Amino acid sequence: MSDETPPAAGLTTGALARRLGVSPTTLRSWDRRYGLGPAVRERGRHRRWSPEDIAMVEEMCRLTAAGAPPAEAARVTRLGRGPAGRAEPAAAVTS
């Protein structure tokens, strides 16, 4: 069985970490510190990252790679999330 699951089920933290080139610990830390984790979780199951969640952490990676401090990158990334926790288009972030 592969870590790469069908898009409807989402990616595991390990699969997403490999895709982004960061460690699973980094993703868990961003979730804990900045609230940048999967929007939906099932009790007793592994985190599954939806396409919207993936877009959010991709933006976090882009901003930190460009030199933004992680806390500031997380703040800007969270601004791009709509009220239901879904990612908004990057153009919606104007601050």
Rank of each mutant, 00 (worst) to 15 (best):
G80Q: 04
L20F: 06
T94I: 09
T13E: 02
T5F: 12
T64K: 12
A15G: 10
A87T: 12
R78T: 03
S23Q: 08
R86C: 08
R33G: 00
A9L: 14
P51K: 01
P24Y: 00
E52A: 11
R32F: 00
R33P: 04
S29D: 07
D31P: 02
E88Y: 12
A15I: 04
L16G: 05
V40W: 07
R81S: 04
P38M: 03
L11K: 14
M56W: 01
A39M: 08
P89R: 15
A92W: 10
R47P: 01
A84H: 14
D53G: 15
T12A: 04
T77P: 03
V93K: 01
G82H: 08
P83Q: 15
G35K: 07
A55M: 02
E58I: 13
I54L: 02
G37Y: 05
T12W: 07
A15C: 02
E58H: 07
V57Y: 03
R75S: 12
R45I: 02
E59L: 12
S23W: 08
P69R: 11
A92C: 14
G85W: 03
E4K: 06
G44D: 04
Y34F: 15
E52R: 10
I54F: 00
W49C: 11
T64Q: 15
S50G: 02
W30C: 04
G21K: 00
E4H: 00
V76H: 11
L20V: 00
T25G: 05
A39H: 09
A84G: 14
T64E: 13
R78E: 00
C61L: 13
L63D: 10
E59F: 08
R45Y: 05
E72W: 05
T12V: 09
T5Y: 10
R41P: 09
M60E: 00
A84L: 13
C61M: 06
R43M: 06
D53S: 14
R33C: 05
W49L: 12
A9E: 14
E72R: 14
R33Y: 01
R18P: 00
G21T: 09
E88V: 05
G44W: 01
E42F: 01
L11M: 15
A8K: 07
R28T: 05
T77A: 11
R45K: 13
A71I: 13
S23E: 11
G21S: 06
G80E: 08
A90F: 11
R62N: 09
D53F: 12
G10Q: 08
A91P: 00
R43V: 15
E59W: 12
M60R: 04
E4D: 00
S29W: 07
P70K: 08
T13P: 03
T94E: 10
R41V: 15
R32P: 00
P38R: 07
R28D: 06
R45V: 05
A39E: 11
V93P: 01
D31V: 11
L20G: 06
T25E: 03
E42S: 13
T5H: 14
P38S: 05
T77G: 02
